[in-house]
Simulated scan of single mutants.
Amino acid sequence: MGLNDWRPFIYGGLASCVAEFGTFPVDTSKTRLQIQGQKVDSKHAKLKYRGMIDCIFKIIRHEGLNALYAGIWPAVLRQSTYGTIKFGTYYCLKQFLIKHHGSETIQINVLCAVIAGSVSSAIANPTDVLKVRMQVDGSSGNVSLFACFKNVYMQEGISGLWRGVSPTAQRAALIAAVELPVYDFCKSRLMDLLGNNISNHFISSLSAGLAGAVASTPIDVVRTRLMNQRKIKLSEGGIGMRMYNGTLDCFIQTFRNEGFWGF
C-alpha cells in the first residue's frame, strides 16, 4: 500500500457508513440519555429514560420505529466524510512516519490517530450538529436533512453549524488516540493465537471501541449538550440566551447540577 493509495480512504468511509446503519438506534438512545436531566434546560430537565433499553423501547412506543433513525442521513453524510478522512489520514500518515523514522511505535500510532481524528471531526462538524438536532427532536421534529440545515443556518447563522466543534475535535482526538492504537495492539497480540482473520479483527475492534467509549463519555456528553443548545436570532435583531458558554462551562454546570453520574 503506497502513500498515494486511495483504498484506506474508500474502505474506511464505506465501513463507517455500513456500521452507522447497524448502530444508529443505539446512538439515538445515547443522545437522548445525554441531554436529559439538565437543570438549566427546563425542556430536558426530566429524567425520562432509565437506560439504553428503556430509552429504545419508549421511543418506539411513543414515537414509532422511525424515530430511532431520525438523523440517519446526516449521520451517513458525516461518516462518508469523517470516516473516510480519519482512516485514510491515519494509515497514510502512519506509513509516512514509519518510512522516515523507522519501525512502528505506539507514539507514532497515537500521534497519527490524534491528528486524523481532530482534523476529520472538525471538517464534519456540521453534519454532527444536524444529526444531534434530528435525534433529539425525533418524530416531533419530522424534518428533512435540508430543512434542518436551513433552520440552523437561518436561526443561528453559519456558526451554528460549528457549534460544539471544540469538544467534538477533543473527543475525536481522544477516541482516535485510544481506539486505533488499541486496535493495532490487540490485533498484533492476537496474531499468533488467531491469525489474520475475522475473529482477530472483531475482538480487536470490540476492545478498541469499548476503550474509546469509556475514555470519551464525559466529553461526549458536553459535546452533545453544546450541539443541541439553540442560540436563536430574535426578531428584534438580538441573540437569545444560551445555557452554556463553552466546553468548560458545560462541564462545570453538568458536574455541579448532576454530579458524576451526569456524565
Score class of each variant (00 low, 15 high):
A15E: 05
A15P: 00
S16W: 12
C17W: 01
C17A: 15
C17K: 01
V18H: 06
A19S: 13
E20Y: 06
F21T: 13
F21C: 14
T23Q: 09
T23N: 11
F24M: 09
V26W: 12
S29R: 04
K30Q: 10
K30P: 00
T31E: 01
T31L: 06
T31S: 09
L33P: 04
L33I: 12
Q36D: 06
Q36R: 07
Q36K: 08
G37T: 05
G37Q: 05
Q38T: 04
Q38G: 01
V40P: 00
S42R: 12
S42E: 15
K43G: 13
K46C: 05
K46W: 03
L47I: 14
K48W: 05
K48P: 00
Y49C: 09
R50W: 00
G51R: 08
I53T: 10
I53F: 11
D54F: 07
I56P: 01
F57S: 14
F57K: 10
K58L: 11
I59C: 06
I60S: 03
H62L: 13
H62D: 15
H62R: 13
E63R: 07
G64R: 07
L65H: 10
L65W: 13
N66V: 08
N66C: 09
L68F: 03
L68M: 12
Y69D: 11
Y69C: 11
A70F: 01
G71A: 10
I72P: 00
W73A: 06
A75F: 07
V76M: 13
S80E: 02
